[in-house]
Structure formats: C-alpha cells, structure tokens
C-alpha cells in the first residue's frame, strides 16, 4: 500500500510553519504508524531532505513520548490506543493522512511535530507526590488499602502524561491530566495528609502554565490512550471545592525549643 501524507513542517518556534505533502514509499499494513514515518524519513534522507522530526520512544504505548494529531484526532483513529500502537492496517491504500503536532499555548512547538510538554512536569513538582523520605516507610502491609480503592487509584495512575487530553480540548485544558494524579493519590490512605494542599497547588500551577478552563465536553476522555475517565475530573473538583472551604491550615506555633 501507499499513502499521501500532509505533514506540518516547521524549522523552529521562530520560523512560521507550513504543510508539506509527501508520497510514501511502498508500505506494509503491519507497520506501525511510526514505522511508516521511519520509512518515509529514510526515503527523505536518501534524497537529501531533512527527515520529519517526531517524538517517540518506547513504541509500546506506555512512555507517553509519542504524540501527533492524525486526521484531526490526537493519537489517531482508535480509542484507547497511542500513536505508536496505531497500525497501517487502519488506513487504506491511497489515503491522504494529515499529520500535525499537539497544539496548545502551554505546549510550545520545538520543531515539525515535536512540542515541549515540560509544563506537565512543573505541575507535578508542586504537589504530585506523597512526602515520604527514603527509609522512613512502615511495613507495606501495615496500611491496608481496600481493593476497590486500589483498583480505582490504578485506573487513574495509568496516565502516561502524553498530553493528548490537552490537544483534543477546544480550551486546551489539562484537567484530565491533573485530575488523574490528584485522584490516584487522593484515593490512597497514604495520600490523605496532603490531599487538599495538593489539589490546590496543582490546580494553581495548571492555571499559571496557561492551560484553559474545563467545560466538560469530554473530548479528553475520548482520545486518552489509557481511557482515563471524566469521573476523575468530578472527583478533583470536589476535592478542590473542599480545599477552598477549608482554607489554608495554620500550624500551631512551632519549634525553636531545645
């Protein structure tokens, strides 16, 4: 099979980009979408044209590095599948396929199809953790976790941090991403002491990064390669409201003695 690609090419952030069209070499339907791009890139390189820059790493749907908006959909045609696990058998011989980067203010473009998602890390750095010093942990079985809670926490914890939720959202909101982390930790007994502080800090940082507001259209859930549920956003909103009502906890006058 052969396909026609309409690909976004942009040298860097300061140079305007444009779509360019390429005809693929002969393909095999068992190739992954990224293997198809590999083949196209080898062809370009052999003809002296710089290959198309795209992000990828594990190629098994877990590292969250790959991105791409394929025919208008982040991660391509299938539900619950990342770009790297999309196979050419999902396309027909002669198809024209439009390939673009994830576009959002908080994900500035680096080159061609590669964008910068460090804003996600910064949100995690302000509260996406349970404060526990190495070596200070009690025996693992001393804190039982109801299986239902552990399973639900795992559903949220599966987020791969790819940013498709942001790319799909008309407001470029990061609510699903943030809600997944807040819910995962908030569902575990270990996560309770910092539960409300965490949600406030992460939401504040999310807003500062320039992500948009959530209007619950659900496009994030529809494209999430791990099918993370919109319910987690409701859960986060609840925690956030409680956190606002509670206000900032004031510590009793501390320390100094001795």
């Amino acid at each position: 099979m052969k396909v026609f690609l309409k690909v976004w090419r942009q040298k860097n952030r300061n140079t305007p980009g444009t779509f360019k069209t390429y005809t693929s070499p002969e393909l095999n339907e068992n190739m992954s979408f990224l293997e198809m791009l590999d083949v196209v890139n080898e062809d370009l390189a052999n003809n002296g044209e710089e290959p198309i820059a795209f992000d990828h790493d594990c190629r098994e749907g877990i590292c969250g590095t790959c991105s791409l908006v394929i025919d208008g959909k982040p991660h391509g045609p299938h539900r619950g599948v990342a770009t790297c696990q999309t196979y050419m058998r999902s396309f027909k011989n002669g198809d024209e396929i439009v390939v673009e980067p994830f576009r959002a203010k908080a994900f500035p473009l680096i080159k061609d199809l590669v964008c910068d998602r460090k804003s996600f890390d910064r949100i995690q750095q302000v509260g996406g953790f349970i404060t526990v010093r190495t070596g200070a942990a009690p025996d693992a079985n001393s804190i039982p976790v109801p299986k239902e809670n552990a399973d639900l926490a795992m559903d949220a914890a599966q987020c791969i941090g790819c940013g498709a939720c942001v790319a799909a959202c008309k407001n470029a909101s990061a609510m699903l991403f943030v809600a997944a982390k807040v819910s995962h930790l908030g569902l575990m007994p270990q996560g309770q002491p910092e539960r409300y502080k965490r949600v406030k800090a992460m939401v504040t940082q999310m807003d500062e990064e320039g992500f948009g507001a959530c209007t619950v259209t659900g496009s994030c859930e529809a494209v999430c390669p791990k099918e993370i549920s919109l319910d987690f956003i409701a859960r986060m909103n609840r925690d956030y409201a409680v956190a606002l009502l509670k206000g900032d906890a004031k510590a009793a006058t501390s320390g100094g003695a001795g």
Partner: peptide, 22 residues
C-alpha cells in the same frame, strides 16, 4: 523488603487482595 515498603508509602497502587493487603 525495604523497597516494597518505600513504594507502598509513596502511594504506588500495587495489586491487592480483598482484605486490602498486598
């Protein structure tokens, strides 16, 4: 053995039995 304690304390959602233990 310390690794499992550490990871559980960090909130790693390990598989659990119905009684809540690992």
């Amino acid at each position: 053995v310390n690794i499992i304690d550490q990871c559980a304390a960090q909130g790693v959602p390990f598989a659990r039995e119905y009684g809540g233990l690992l």
